[in-house]
Design a protein around this nucleic acid. Structure first.
Lengths: 230, 230
DNA sequence: GCCGCCCTCACCATTTTGGGGGAGGGAATA
DNA sequence: TATTCCCTCCCCCAAAATGGTGAGGGCGGC
């Protein structure tokens, strides 16, 4: 199976890979869904194309409780554990079921550097017990698949989503870190025991290196690039 | 093995688990190393305690090329592929080898929401070929272990590293997102087709919800909490 | 129906940032 | 040795952000 994946060099091939996986794993639907930072989405999945189109058209990722919940979790999420109570959520659920998505499912969140985020989901119709048995048996396999699939997808898409940036000097890192924590220039300068004038040089050079238009932008970019850790 | 892990309820038990894993996998050292956002670190590992102490004391995570490189990658990293040329890095390497760390190794980066980051590394002394054979055989197992180990560590530590925050309204998200991209208030207001005065209300209410002292802080917090996606 | 939250807009004084200069000493690298 | 960063400091002035306060309409939940 991994040999098959390693031969995939296009996103279309990934799509085919996911489809064949569905048969191997004897499940109705498998979905690899990459939510790129820039708002672009890519998916390799077994859903009905019309549902996919609608999902993207309506930007359902914003209300899809699976996406929203997985985005702030580490563990794989069983769909049963989600909150489906909100009105918009119930409506979304109704549409999804009409489109043939199973009532049982679980999703594995996958993260990369710079905020890359993807979901690998398996789902089908069925009762709770059967589903619990299935997930219990398959979860390790699916975690690994999620991992390799994401690795491959990033490789194909070109993982340099955010262009490379010049590394920051230690002082620049200190500066942006303290700014990210909510300090203003005066505070940061005091903390670092330097004059505010000096501090400004660091901020501006960091901004220049990052191609940022202002301090907020520079801090956001430094965080997203993993250049500073708060 | 997973049963053994599921019974671990303390960080000490995790330590024991990692030690027994080392024997099962016939390797010199295994290291689970969680780098918490706040700068706190936790590790379950098989290194010499004096090296661990020194590592923490000197804050070597800041210069350790394994940590630095893994932090901005998705794939597991083989230590051979790293850049060991910088002076401080070579010195660090010398100290590490003196402390008994193997010359061959690889590390699997693991990420959670809100910027949680951990590393699971395996290493030992040996030549390149033997190491390549070992990693090729074991990498899938180790990826899974890394996954479960991190899941368990977060569970034990309490994964609410950053206190919960009130959710942001759609307009607040829009606002912070556009600010994170480097727009100033005037631009954002124009983009959203609202007056700058209105925009300010969103910024301030977002700041209030997040407990942020200024816009930069609010944007940084929103990014780290996964409340906005840029 | 009331309460809370969201969306929208306004004004004014003050504080904070940004733009654009210049300058010296030190460390590292090519 | 020359060049390139890095760290440190200074000045002036314009532009932008912030703090505080007030206010109306809408929607959804209890």
């Amino acid at each position: 199976m991994q040999e098959m994946l390693s031969q995939a060099t296009t996103l279309e091939a990934l799509q085919g890979f996911v489809e064949s996986l569905r048969d191997v794993y004897d499940i109705e639907h498998l979905v690899y869904h990459s939510v790129n930072p820039k708002g672009g989405q890519y998916a390799a999945l077994t859903y009905d194309p019309s549902w996919v189109e609608r999902y993207i058209e309506e930007d359902y990722a914003r209300i899809d409780p699976v996406v929203q919940s997985a985005y702030r979790r580490f563990h794989p999420v069983d769909w049963k554990a989600l909150d489906w109570s909100a009105k918009t959520t119930r409506q979304f659920l109704g549409e999804a079921i009409d489109a043939g998505i199973g009532n049982q499912g679980f999703s594995i969140p996958i993260r990369g550097p710079s905020g890359q985020f993807a979901l690998f989901s398996a789902n089908q119709k069925g009762n709770d017990d059967a589903w619990a048995a299935y997930t219990n048996e398959r979860v390790s396999d699916l975690i690994l698949i999620a991992h390799y699939l994401n690795e491959k997808a990033l490789e194909i898409e070109g993982s340099e989503e955010r262009g490379p940036v010049r590394p920051l000097s230690p002082r620049e890192k200190d500066t942006l870190t303290l700014l990210a924590l909510g300090n203003n220039r005066a505070n940061v300068a005091e903390t670092l025991n330097i004059s505010e004038n000096t501090l400004r040089v660091y901020i501006e050079s960091a901004r220049f290196k990052l191609g940022a238009t202002n301090t907020t932008h520079a801090v956001a970019m430094a965080l997203l690039h993993g250049l500073i850790v708060v």
